[in-house]
Amino acid sequence: MADSNGNKILAVITEKEGQVMGGVPVFIASDAKKREDTAFLLEKILDGMVHQLNESTFVIVHHA
């Protein structure tokens, strides 16, 4: 999953099931608050940066 710079998507947190697929852990959150909380915890655990992809999806990226 790493690109040429070594950046890597570690996880995806989304409210819309089915929007994300593929070889990455996907966490489904029921609402915005839960999504925010999960992303917060995962950021600390994975040491990856949380980016907002769209209104309902966060990706956690490890920047090399």
């Binding site: 925010e36 917060f40 949380v50 980016h51 966060f58 990706v59």
Partner: peptide, 8 residues
């Protein structure tokens, strides 16, 4: 940059 979390 893009910052996801409201806290950050």
């Amino acid at each position: 940059m893009n910052i996801g979390l409201a806290d950050n």
